[in-house]
Design a protein around this nucleic acid. Sequence first.
DNA 1: GGGTACATGTAATCAGTTACATGATTTA
DNA 2: TAAATCATGTAACTGATTACATGTACCC
Lengths: 194, 194
Amino acid sequence: MSTDQLSSTSYLVLGLIAREGASTPYDLKRHVAATIGNFWSFPHALLYKEPPRLVDLGLLTEVRELDGRRRRLFTITSAGAGALQAWLERPSWEATELRDPGLLQLFFADQGSSDTQGDIAREQLPIHRAKLSAYETEEQLGPGPEGARSGHLTLEHWRGQTVRMGVLYERAAVEFWEGVTADVAAGEAAAALA
Amino acid sequence: MSTDQLSSTSYLVLGLIAREGASTPYDLKRHVAATIGNFWSFPHALLYKEPPRLVDLGLLTEVRELDGRRRRLFTITSAGAGALQAWLERPSWEATELRDPGLLQLFFADQGSSDTQGDIAREQLPIHRAKLSAYETEEQLGPGPEGARSGHLTLEHWRGQTVRMGVLYERAAVEFWEGVTADVAAGEAAAALA
DNA sequence: GGGTACATGTAATCAGTTACATGATTTA
DNA sequence: TAAATCATGTAACTGATTACATGTACCC
């Protein structure tokens, strides 16, 4: 069971099940939605498809309920835990992907009409401001200092970290789009003088 | 030719060819590498595969050199230009994807040994610092104010914007990982007291 | 008891990635 | 002229996304 066929999705699933214990794909879906799903989307179909694959590799085991919803409960094996550990110790050199469709539009704004750039900025800015304030609210509501106990990171703490990254990223985005807006305004002023 | 089968890759290709005129896939590759490729990876095979698809849709035309390297030169059609315009006017509501493998590891640091969190932070911080300073250098070398003329955005300007976003994002990342490092240090200090 | 939202899955398609392969230019 | 690097492409695979489909619990 060489570990090089494991993707980020695999480790996400392994990590969640390692922490939370026996989980259904739906459990995974909810945890993801509350945390990293905010900026790294994992469609639910993925979270239904990946666990069976990991079972084939011997990293998870499956137990299926016989009654009612007939849920599929997945549990980590010691091989699975081992693969997770090994991944944690291996530095991840892979670069961050930052895929922002709004940015892509901005980059081609010169191919639109004269006010395309302004239009895009005016539409992106409120989006990022809204996200920022949502994250900031969540940060306020976050847990007190009790999460900081001696090395043990709870799910709460984990959520806190995604929120923290969210805040920092959205601040950067707001600053960026404000800069664009300012540029557009300056450009218009200069044009008016000419 | 309904436009809903067009992906971000499609618009990237259309936009570049609209701006630069007749281009080979390799031209696209170089432009991408110098700009948005810094944080949104488009493997070269994509940039060789997408143009023929757009030719099928009537958005590009192809002319192939007969001699030497037999390059394939792609040019935008009026239908292609129209699709690009329409996209620029359509607000892009899709959320930014921020896919950071380092963050993913951090989120599962509690499943590793007691110093996994610190190890990850110590390894990510220099990576982001290096990227930040590379971007900042590039920003210094950037073009003077001559790029700001009345609404016309040059490729240089475009490059400038990706660099700007890069700087802001990497600053956020550095701040984030510094925060993690500080947390770890605080945790160790607290543990030492107990 | 009817509607609505939650929950659970499967199948087909397609985009993205990896791997392979080779020709053309430049430089030592 | 040999090596190295730049440039150009194709093919196979696989992971991700979309669409479909249905069952279960809750609420009015």
